[in-house]
Design a protein around this nucleic acid. Structure first.
Length: 555
RNA sequence: GCGCCCGUAGCCCAGUGGAUAGGGCGUCAGCCUCCGGAGCUGAAGAUCGCAGGUUCGAAUCCUGCCGGGCGUACCA
């Protein structure tokens, strides 16, 4: 509808210029918006104001000229008004909105999709939590945001690849192995001290017990290095398996789980360091190797190989991000917790040093999550010892509610996640409000079939033409907005826009439902209304699927 | 100190330079003879942190300040 009107305005302005009524044909792009106040019409444009300078005319005068040259072959405009500083307000015929319904039904699950991405290969790397402990609720936020962004981008024509980077190498895995090993020794009654930097959680005890059941003799007899290495491998695989399960429960899956260790095994870390060394981007100082990140905008240079000869996490990350581009991705998106934001300049520097443009690299920083129970911080858990795990939250609250709560805030605002609120089935927790629309419509159709004997909905002109109630037109107008909401959600990588849209649509539906009867004694009117609410249901289902939330037929 | 994010009604949050700043919770007053009340209608409630600036127009852009969070490793 907006594009249609846009074209009409552009055509009118050009016609006015040819007729000599306007001074310049250098027009600003036409922007159409929906006025907040109904008295300002269905749609409006600030076209006249934007062009006041180039036309050297008063905005209201320009508006008059444009309106007088406006052609409306389809008769969609009921009337126009010039208002305020020079807005042109359009009041449309209600019937002008009817074709939207056919569009929705024809495109069905693809309604709102677009080809914005033009098939570009885009990689979304998210979660990537170290396999040294269970996921917590903050990881859950990154998982849900990353997953939903990926789904939306895919819906908008990008070829999306989801990836999880496993930090299965280096110091923290060593520490994990040592922690497990020491717990094994302790459980065998050996008097060993457990270091402060070891992993304290109860899950380490659980793993140690399992290991002792399986290989007690070997563990206690083997050399320490060998035993620690074995424990590290066993524990990290075990924990990673748990992480996969937790994410699956959240409806999050990946195309590839990328091993950090594989970068070392294939020599890609060494290769990256060597190549940057020959380019003079890595230098030797104080017995360590430094990357010249400062030359690319970082506040200081960063170490890639430490004095002790070990590479840093940054070294493998350089290799990893190079590898991403070598695999042919046009765009890469990293979803990180906000506590890693200081890492952006150095990764960005590494990418620029590799000859890539850093506008091909985008970081989504999800702000931290405060877990509460009834308003009180719920940092302590009865089971896991240290913190409440993501798994416990999903088990208690449910996947749909967890996802929706994460997606009803912009990822850049901090989030208080209250377990008590998340379990409530009130409008404090709007996932149910939206799902309820879907279930309610299913229920109406069930009733239509069983009690009215209605087999199918025709949606022909005679029935759709009966849709003239203000609430009906409001619903269709709302649904007409859906495609641009999706586009903006993709453009800004902001799934919360979809969530808020769905809540608004749900409100419009509930209001309609409360005021008007769908299953009337008039078959044509009933058919039109069923056609209308079926469209609403499709969009609710469509939108929820972009958020990874289910659309139940009964609740 | 420096860097990043956030300050919008009692509380939680939307808001793409546009007209009278929107929802939800909570509060108050109402709505079921019949499609699911996990619903609807109405009311009260805001100096958009503060002060400047940019322009026809600023919650939105710029500068400074004040709050809060996070970061500032040869940790990950």
């Amino acid at each position: 509808m907006k594009t249609k009107l846009k074209d009409m305005i552009k055509t009118a302005a050009e016609a006015a210029y040819r007729a000599g009524a306007l001074e310049s044909d250098d027009f600003a792009p036409v922007a159409i918006e929906e006025p907040k106040a109904g008295a300002h019409g269905d749609l409006a444009t600030n076209f006249a104001m934007l062009n006041a300078a180039t036309q050297k005319m008063a905005p209201r005068k320009i508006a008059e000229v444009v309106v007088s040259y406006l052609a409306d072959p389809d008769g969609i405009i009921e009337k126009t008004e010039i208002a305020g500083p020079g807005f042109i307000n359009f009041f449309l015929n209600p019937s002008a909105w009817h074709p939207i319904l056919h569009e929705i039904h024809e495109q069905d699950g693809r309604y709102g999709a677009c080809d914005m991405g033009d098939g570009q290969n885009i990689q979304v790397e998210f979660v990537s939590a170290n396999p040294t402990g269970p996921l917590h609720v903050g990881h859950g936020r990154g998982a849900v945001v990353g997953d939903s962004v990926a789904t939306i981008l895919s819906f908008c024509g990008y070829s999306v690849f989801r990836e999880y980077y496993i930090n299965d190498s280096g110091k923290q895995i060593q520490t994990l192995g040592r922690s497990v090993y020491l717990r094994c020794l302790q459980s065998a009654g050996r008097d060993v001290t457990f270091p402060e930097d070891g992993y304290q959680g109860d899950y380490i005890w659980d793993i140690a017990k399992t290991l002792m059941d399986q290989a007690k003799e070997w563990l206690l007899g083997a050399g320490e290095d060998e035993a620690v290495a074995y424990c590290a491998k066993y524990a990290s695989e075990k924990i990673l398996g748990g992480i996969r399960e937790d994410l699956a429960l959240l409806g999050v899956g990946f195309d590839h789980w990328f091993s950090e260790q594989s970068l070392y095994d294939s020599g890609k870390v060494d290769a990256a360091i060597k190549q940057f060394q020959t380019k003079g981007l890595i230098y030797d100082s104080e017995a360590a190797l430094w990357f010249r990140t400062q030359a690319f905008g970082d506040e200081k240079d960063r170490v890639v190989v430490r004095q002790n000869g070990q590479t840093t996490y940054f070294a493998s990350d350089i290799a990893y991000h190079r590898d991403k581009f070598e695999r042919g991705f046009d765009q890469i998106i990293d979803v990180w917790g906000a506590d890693h934001h200081g890492y952006i300049p150095r990764i960005s520097a590494a990418i620029k040093a590799s000859g890539k443009n850093d506008d091909q690299f985008h970081v989504i920083l999800t702000q931290l999550v405060n877990l509460l129970r009834g308003g009180i911080p719920a940092t302590m858990s009865t089971r896991a010892g240290k913190f409440v795990t993501l798994r416990e939250v999903i088990d208690e609250v449910g996947c749909d509610a967890v996802r929706f709560i994460f997606l009803t805030r912009h990822y850049e605002s901090q989030l208080d996640f209250d377990l008590e609120v998340a379990k409530q089935k009130t409008n404090d927790n709007p996932v149910y409000y939206v799902q309820y629309v879907h279930a309610r419509i299913s229920s109406i159709f069930k009733k239509a079939r069983t009690e009215k004997g209605i087999k199918e909905v025709s949606g022909d002109e005679a029935s759709v033409g009966r849709l003239s109630e203000p609430e009906e037109i409001a619903l269709i107008k709302h649904m007409a907005r859906y495609p641009e909401v999706i586009r903006s959600a993709a453009q800004w990588m902001a799934p919360h826009r979809v969530a808020f849209y769905l809540m608004d649509l749900a409100a419009a539906f509930h209001a309609y439902y409360n005021k008007h009867w769908v299953l009337t004694s008039d078959p044509k009117l009933t058919d039109g209304r069923l056609y209308l609410i079926l469209a609403v249901q499709k969009i609710i289902r469509n939108g929820l699927s972009l958020l990874g939330v289910s659309a139940p037929d009964t609740m």
